[in-house]
């Protein structure tokens, strides 16, 4: 089994609901985003490239690609980031991470991984999100974990469930009959920077 995701870029409207619900579900600390929506246009977010009438804008949601061949897993000196052979999810063990930031340096997808540069702060006085969301720790690295606690209960990741445009599909890439596999088989797809040999488990439908 290899969990993966298809994100339909023709449906994504750049509303960033995925960023917000991800933060809530996983109690992601202040200043950190596991799920970001990049603007394919001008330098600044939500700006277009070019000038009227030749302007264009697009969106690219990015998060951990849960690569089939993850550079981070190979590089972590203590195995604090590891790939679950059962599910294909790349996990992050906060209790083990020594904070060397090697995984950040080797991940080809700039900005995917975040380090807690200070004591993690909550937006509220109490932890938000799912009861089983892991407790964040100072001086450890974190990233999208495909909502492993929700997936283990048979639910979908929060970003998939709550995407307003229904652009996201989650499922088993190894099962040819799964909805996600069918989409990837029938639509034209792209992966982010496939040239590094990581084989990302997130496919963009273009």
């Amino acid at each position: 089994m290899r969990y993966g995701m298809a994100i339909d870029l023709k449906r994504c409207s750049g509303c960033k609901t995925c960023s917000v619900v991800c933060k809530v579900a996983n109690n992601v600390p202040e200043g950190i985003l596991w799920n970001r929506v990049l603007t394919d246009g001008g330098e600044a977010p939500d700006t277009s490239s070019g000038t009227y009438p030749d302007a264009s804008i697009g969106y690219l949601p990015v998060q951990c690609n849960h690569c089939e061949n993850p550079a981070c897993v190979k590089a972590c000196p203590v195995g604090a980031t590891w790939k679950d052979k059962e599910t294909g999810i790349v996990h992050q063990d906060y209790d083990k991470c020594i904070g060397c930031r090697m995984c950040i340096a080797v991940c080809p997808y700039t900005g995917i991984r975040s380090f807690n540069w200070q004591e993690p702060k909550n937006y509220a006085d109490y932890p938000l999100g799912d009861a089983k969301a892991a407790v964040h720790q100072k001086h450890t690295v974190e990233k999208c974990i495909f909502c492993e606690h929700r997936v283990a209960e048979g639910k979908k990741p929060a970003c998939v469930e709550q995407c307003l445009a229904r652009a996201r599909t989650f499922g088993d890439l190894d099962d040819p009959d799964s909805e996600v596999s069918k989409l990837i088989a029938t639509r034209e797809t792209q992966q982010l920077h496939p040239e590094f040999g990581t084989n990302p488990s997130i496919y963009y439908l273009v």
Partner: peptide, 11 residues
């Protein structure tokens, strides 16, 4: 590697 438009913050 990824240079698309994004928000920067203090972290």
């Amino acid at each position: 590697n990824v240079t698309l438009g994004d928000v920067a913050n203090e972290f």
